[in-house]
Amino acid sequence: MFASKRLSKELSKLHDKLPPGISLICADDLKEWLMDIRVIDTNPLYQDEVYRLKFVFSQSYPIEAPEVVFVKDDEHPIPWHPHIYSNGIICLDLLDRQGWSPVHNVESVCVSLQSMLTSNTKKERPPGDENFVKYNKQRPRDISFVFHDNQV
């Protein structure tokens, strides 16, 4: 019930100022936004690439986590990461029902993803990526991920 008010406030803050490497692409309504992120250090895995994120908000945002996935198109690949499936679905505790907290926001999620990429050194997909991508019909928020390692 607070979603639209809170999102319009977040939006005006985003228009004001954004951290380096993060930009707002599209926020035509208060349901679905597109954000672009790129890493700002020299991690060779991600140089010269820009990744596009899609945020989908429910009516209960920010009490409920937004649904956040990478989207792929001609200019935007899906970044290599052992917690990012090749269809763009992200396995990050912050975005999970239990790990989410309403004090997070669109900007802080982008920053977390940025630093998740920055600190990664493995050009890998999660184990079972091929099967997951092929058979998964669930929406990201309904999947219960097992957070098996906290190192990456």
Partner: peptide, 16 residues
Amino acid sequence: TLIEHLKRNPTDPLTR
């Protein structure tokens, strides 16, 4: 609003 959050997740939003 905090009560709304605690209903779903009985943790401090910041420290958990």
